[in-house]
Amino acid sequence: MSEFALIMLSAVLVNNFVLTKFLGICPFLGVSRKLETAVGMSLAVLFVMTLASTASWLVQQFILIPFDLMYLQTIFFILIIAVLVQFIEMLIHKSSPVLYQALGIFLPLITTNCAVLGVALLNVQQEQTFMTSALYGFGSALGFALVLLLFAGLRERIDKAPVPEAFKGSAVSLITAGLMSLAFMGFSGLVKV
């Protein structure tokens, strides 16, 4: 049980995908302008990442390894992720057209979100079990959601704040992201193994 807790803690805080591994930066900067869209993106990523990590584990164990097709790993994983993303895209279009419009190009781009593929590949690399890989995928997505929401909240504030002209817009956002990253570095060494 403590192993599961450690995986979650590590995925969410210590080895946060965005701020310590620097994966998935593009949606992190792209859809963090408003809290509402960030919530939508977080949910979408949560869904895709969790399912992608489990599905890719299944594919890895029951297709790629038995048939010795390891060299097709990336293409298989991308196929799974793409299907999942297409599915969630339809779901969002149906349930929330405004969110669909707001996420815009970043929604299909989850396919190429390196964090999603990263989770799938890291699971294979680290030779996780089915449970741990699902948990790792879920935890990583939670970590992504956490920093995306924090960042969106900060950006909403900064958007209206009297920022010096030269720093307005992306500049101050990048500085904020950098400071957040520094803060998350502080979590390293949180758990002694």
């Binding site: 799974i80 299907v83 599915f87 339809m90």
Partner: peptide, 12 residues
Amino acid sequence: AGIVLAIASRVF
């Protein structure tokens, strides 16, 4: 996957 998506597009 294509079949799954086709069904989904009908549903949604």
